[in-house]
Design a protein around this nucleic acid. Structure first.
Lengths: 200, 200
DNA sequence: TTATTTTACCTAACAGTGTTAGCAAAGGTA
DNA sequence: TACCTTTGCTAACACTGTTAGGTAAAATAA
């Protein structure tokens, strides 16, 4: 029964093409300009076909969010593997996070901003646990080697992520002037403070 | 010619009622549910009247953003006045910022999130300079009294604001479970690190 | 091969959105 | 009273997300 498989394959192709078209539209004109009809036109199908693959528009954006976290995770893993001490790993990952955000502004805005990842949906992103684990590991090592081994690693993970996201999102919106020099300094400042805060 | 003044006064009343209705709708149903027609219905005027007072919907949200920053600034001033050392001022302002964000989630989301304050619009918010000055002053004092008096206060302001916003926005979206205990700790952790990072 | 059922897909519509053109009536001026 | 300006309305345009209902093609069964 190769027919059923062929159909399944075709269905997945259409699904993938929806996501690809959606992503292209987001990159070109921003996520605000994304519409079901534009996607339909791009994939050369009628509008209701899209609803055979996704419950609604939000589900498409949620999928893009997942893809974004997958790619971010890959970048973080790459950065982590290029360093050998936990503090250098954390530093490299912070830079990688920053670089990902500004290399993929559209992704980053879909992943956070825009109010779409509401309270319920954000917990559906399983990629978040991978993301957490990636940072948690060197944090734990650093705590264990430091002078306060009872520090809660989750607290530090939370701090790390929050501050990094704050850094990125503040600088992403205020980019009227180019203060990338200042931003680099802020990032350095943060990393130094974060790492030394766990050692001493 | 009291007639012209009466008209002007009336026009301002209508303008204010638009903002009030818009704000009420945002609080009730979230900013995504805000629509020009709903505002028109609430103020008991027809739709085009709104466009006599605001160029477009974005202008209304921008005005709400300004209001939000005004209110935030007030809270920060209040908190600052209740402390007498620069480090206690910074601490109090951080808590006030946090409290404002979660007491006025709708405001905070309009002010940041949602992609509407885009690169161009955010620079139009004059209230941001007041906000900056409020934090800049104790930061400068702290730097002057510390061991590294050459530290750039703008860098520290940037760090302060970024991290605080990151803390808030991460915790605002992930509020599936109630981890307010953890959040309080993260906030404390951040403030301690920030202040001691400037003294030593 | 023919009849039947399933699936794939489309057209058209509903209810809503931001925005604006054009008109009627009321208010103020001469 | 006649004129003009302002004020506010109705109605429309061009979109949006979403779905009901129908048609033709494809797969299955007789």
């Amino acid at each position: 029964m190769g027919i059923a498989e062929r159909k399944k394959r075709h269905k997945e192709e259409v699904r993938a093409s929806i996501l690809e078209a959606a992503w292209q539209l987001v990159v070109q004109d921003g996520w605000q300009a994304l519409s079901i009809r534009k996607i339909a036109e791009a994939i050369e199908y009628s509008v209701p076909v899209i609803y055979d693959h996704f419950a609604n528009k939000e589900a498409i954006l949620l999928e893009l969010t997942k893809q974004g976290f997958q790619q971010l995770n890959q970048e973080l893993i790459k950065a982590k593997n290029q360093a050998n001490t936990p503090e250098k790993q954390i530093e490299a990952m912070a830079y990688a996070y920053w670089k990902f955000a500004f290399d993929n502004v559209a992704y980053y805005q879909v992943m956070y901003g825009l109010g779409i990842p509401s309270c319920e949906t954000v917990n559906q992103i399983s990629e978040l646990s991978t993301f957490s684990d990636l940072i948690l590991q060197p944090v734990k090592e650093l705590i264990a080697a430091g002078k306060q081994p009872n520090t809660d690693p989750f607290l530090k993970l939370h701090t790390f992520w929050s501050m990094l996201h704050g850094l990125v999102s503040i600088n992403m919106m205020g980019s009227g002037e180019d203060k990338s020099d200042l931003n680099q300094l802020v990032l350095q400042d943060f990393i130094r403070g974060f790492v030394t805060g766990m050692k001493s």
